[in-house]
Design a protein around this nucleic acid. Structure first.
Lengths: 212, 212
DNA sequence: ATCGCTTATGGAACACGTTCTACTCTACCG
DNA sequence: CGGTAGAGTAGAACGTGTTCCATAAGCGAT
């Protein structure tokens, strides 16, 4: 008798994984990140990732629905730790700076981080348009973390417009990064334009009481 | 005796093509566009495109360096005609509207066009991150046309800040489109947010003399 | 310990973008 | 005209993401 209904082979939610499985998952992500910084997204192959993390190729697809999904998880992880750094930095020098100044520093440091790891910038860009639902989910989580970080940096901007401002900065960041890694602009121009955007959109809050 | 240097097989510039070649090129782009709207980017295959346009597969690659290049050329063409429409529309109702209002209408109509052709929205998004130099070139041209159109719609905004505003709107547009086609947001939310962005960034010019 | 289920493994198989090969066709130069 | 270079054609071949299959572990319930 032949099995009529196939077993579900799409990735299980992370929360439902055993420790052993979480470890495998972590290894896959770590291997992907390492390989990306070593040889670049373009040359990264799923076969390498699974080999390096000691997992069979087929099994990799039980953890990540696609290459995009794996890459999205990888960049999300890195980006998350970057954000924590940046927020920590910003928190340190809160006093005496306007929201605009703090935000400019924030994105400047962020851009520098990507400058140091251009392959990760490429990774972020290459994954941003993925239509894999699991990858989308990971990207959405990343955008949410972004939003929280930006909110922390512009505490004095009221939530209503702050929301819009966050989208503006987020989109501009992504857009300039994309333009850079695809060779449509230089990194300096991208950085400059992103800072211009921040300033334009935050100058109304220049005069807000910075001591508040 | 074996040939040591291969013949150059990268696409020749459009200006240097014979009429016969321009026609083939046009057929390829038209076939690609038609197929995208019929079956979607995801299912489009180079073999189909070349078959439908009566060109050998290998030859296709003498006109376009990659699938991305072809798709970029295709969406650029469509987007260009969309822009012309939108600018025409906007020109018609110039009187009595602020830059902000005109721009809101502009992006609203633009979004509606993509709503009517969701596959083309997907196409635009899927091609935006391409690293193929020829595709990049096409995208850069598209961005330039975008800029010109936006400039036309916000004639009363001074060039210095207008430049930044154009980048903001352009990035936000692309970003919201991306979020939509990847299922991270609904079309309504995307449209709303894009309009919010436009308004936030153009309200300083609300008071500017609309009769100017 | 043993059944019975799920999960993992190794490797073959498949799909589609891209490249290669051998051949034909066309245009032009003498 | 005949010969040659370039451009096109049909289709095989190759690489890599993804899927499939047969088999082997892992592991909770009896």
């Amino acid at each position: 008798m032949v099995k009529v209904t196939k077993v579900d082979l799409s990735p299980r939610p992370v929360e439902a994984m055993s420790p052993r499985q979480l470890e495998r998952r972590g290894n896959l992500i770590a291997a992907a990140l390492a390989l990306v910084t070593e040889i670049g997204v373009e040359r990264l192959q799923m076969r390498q990732v699974s080999e390096r993390s000691g997992v069979a190729l087929g099994t990799t697809y039980r953890y990540f629905s696609s290459k995009d999904h794996l890459l999205a998880a990888a960049i999300a992880e890195w980006h998350h730790s970057l954000l924590t750094d940046l927020v920590g930095e910003a928190r340190g020098r809160r006093a005496g700076l306007t929201a605009s100044d703090r935000m400019v520093r924030f994105v400047r440091h962020g851009m520098r981080a990507y400058q140091r790891q251009p392959e990760l910038a490429r990774l972020r860009v290459s994954v941003a348009a993925s239509t894999d639902p699991f990858a989308s989910e990971a990207l959405q989580a990343m955008a949410k973390a972004d939003g929280a970080a930006l909110r922390a940096v512009m505490s004095e901007v009221p939530p209503s417009t702050g929301d819009v401002v966050r989208h503006i900065v987020g989109h501009a960041w992504q857009g300039e990064l994309t333009a850079w890694v695809t060779g449509r602009t230089t990194l300096d121009d991208a950085r400059r334009r992103l800072e211009d955007v921040v300033r334009l959109v935050l100058t109304p809050y220049e005069a807000a009481d910075p001591a508040a």
